[in-house]
């Protein structure tokens, strides 16, 4: 019995009209809501977004650098300052750490603690739009972090080529999403946080941060640890960042592999995350 065959009364027509805008703009409504909710901790975001890079650049880039006996990073014309070497990796670490908060606790909150996703679910919004809106809002926060970080990196003179500041935030965003979207898919499937998020933080994020060639080239580590870099969005994005910032020598094929891994992780995570949202909200 299809709708087309029966005469449509005004209720049906009203329904058809009522969903036009939500179908088109739904994800933006969700993003708007999430960004408003972020305002509650807006100052934390701003101070953290500016303060953290400042501290890391000062502490590691300058303080620690003065104790290095040997150069760590190399451009086409020889060694580059240590702060220039670590800056891209620190930037990507910062965007990734946005997701360890926004794609974990915020998601659990939406489904379980504050339950706002269920409110959205009863409205004309579709589950996929809720996921998209959340991702958009997080992208905005990430973009702020990435731009602030890049500005400080430039202020420290920690880039090889100044034009690269136009590309670094984008790499930050890509790296952040390559880690974040698979995490979102995981979080959205959890019914309860029995320590999983803390485990992600301490057994995924921290080791990744420490062993992804962040502080020295991956080759410095024993070979049996290199796989951590290969699967780590942080390593792929950092390497690209170094290639962009000070032209760290890199073949075209390598660039393609780095980009390919990042895009695949982000896209795969995205598809999976939407599927989990739909399954959970319309199951």
């Amino acid at each position: 019995m299809s709708v087309e065959q029966t005469t449509r009364d005004d209720a049906t027509l009203a329904a058809l009209a009522g969903a036009v805008r939500p179908r088109r703009f739904g994800a933006l409504y969700v993003a708007e809501h999430q960004l408003r909710a972020m305002r509650a901790y807006g100052w934390t975001i701003v101070i953290g977004g500016l303060g953290q890079p400042l501290l890391y650049l000062l502490g590691l880039g300058l303080g620690l650098a003065s104790f290095l006996d040997a150069p760590v990073g190399f451009g086409p014309d020889g060694p580059v300052p240590y702060v220039t070497f670590v800056a891209p990796a620190l930037l990507v670490t910062a965007t990734i750490s946005v997701t360890t908060e926004e794609f974990t606790y915020t998601v659990m909150s939406g489904f379980k603690w504050r339950r706002v996703f269920w409110g959205m679910n009863a409205s004309p919004l579709a589950p996929g739009q809720v996921a998209t809106g959340l991702v958009l809002a997080v992208a905005v926060r990430m973009a702020f972090v990435a731009v602030a970080y890049t500005a400080l990196i430039a202020a420290f003179g920690a880039v090889g080529h100044l034009w690269s500041v136009a590309v670094l935030p984008l790499l930050g965003l890509l790296g952040g999403m390559a880690f974040g979207l698979p995490l979102l898919a995981y979080s959205a499937g959890l019914r309860d946080d029995a320590g999983q998020f803390a485990a992600v933080q301490r057994f995924v994020f921290t080791p990744m941060f420490l062993f992804s060639g962040t502080f020295y080239p991956l080759a410095t580590l024993p070979t049996w640890l290199h796989w951590i870099g290969w699967v780590s969005p942080l390593w792929h994005a950092s390497e690209l960042g170094r290639a962009v910032s000070y032209a760290q020598p890199m073949s075209g094929a390598t660039v393609a592999v780095h980009l390919g891994v990042l895009v695949a992780l982000a896209a795969g995570g995205w598809v999976l995350a939407r599927r989990v949202f739909v399954g959970r909200m319309h199951g």
Binding site: V3, A11, A14, A15, L16, G18, A19, P22, R23, G26, R36, A37, A40, R114, R115, V116, W118, G119, A122, S123, P124, L125, A126, H282
Partner: peptide, 22 residues
């Protein structure tokens, strides 16, 4: 036609899901 239908419904769920941050 989920979105169409939901645009004409008001739903009071069994468990409140008011936004406690607003």
């Amino acid at each position: 036609h989920g979105p169409e239908i939901r645009s004409q419904l008001g739903v009071v769920p069994q468990e409140d899901n008011l936004d406690t941050e607003l």
